[in-house]
Amino acid sequence: MKPPRFEYRAPSDVEEVVGILTEVGDEGKVLAGGQSLVPSMNFRLARPGLLVDINGVKALDYIQRSGDRILIGTLTRHSCLENAAAVPGPLGRLLATAAHHVGHMPIRVRGTFGGSVAHADPAAEWCMVSVLLDAEIIAVGSRGRRTIPAEDFFRTVFTTALEPYELLSEVILPVLPDSARFGFVEFSRRAGDFAIVASSVVIDVGSNGIINPRVALAGVGGTPVRARSAEAVLAGSAPSAELFRAAADAAAGDVEPMGDIHGSSEYRRHLVRVLTRRALERAASEA
């Protein structure tokens, strides 16, 4: 299980990265943490002709606040987000919880936020979180910079809206109000594995019931999805066990999961119902 031959470049700034990507087109592949790319190269499933290693582009490693938005540089390691204080408020706690679910410690110190989003594994935490929070994904190419809404970004399994000449440079997330509460629940058979199904929710309970409910699911198809009918069930209602059950049922109706050896379509749909209810319960009880 040795990877096929490739050429290697290690540029030091974004402009150079984009220049190389433009020059080589389909042959090029960005190497960030490599925790998904390198295994697939070792299996010879991925065969890039040229690896563009961005680990030397230190300018891509940052977490910044800009008004009511948090900007996450693509090279931010998963482990940096495990610290809830890295990002203020409930968003920081949500990101820390999600980060903790990413693989294992040696994977988290190496793997990157942007790399995971660009890899677009339908079970990946950051892809689900991006869809959950309507992240804006910033792609930089020789024709400049463009913003892609998360839901448009993920096309299908391992496939995104990124062009071969583009670098995913940043992901922008909205700061959540202090009153927001989240729930993040995964089901996997073994510690640290990709979730068979994951469910994440954000709710904000006001005097008129739940405002801005968000429900996103992973492991249910080619991309992470928003459970819009579940959100509709939740919006404007007071939290209750019954409401959460109804929302979870709606979420299960929102998906048409693909089955594989890790779980049939039927089982995944069942898990969506269970995990979404648990995520909502967790959100409701989050202090």
Binding site: Y8, G34, Q35, L51, N55, P106, I107, V109, R110
Partner: peptide, 13 residues
């Protein structure tokens, strides 16, 4: 100082 998987990195990195 960080534990990493040496099979998932290239020496050149």
């Amino acid at each position: 100082g960080d534990p990493v998987r040496a099979c998932l990195m290239f020496a050149i990195q």
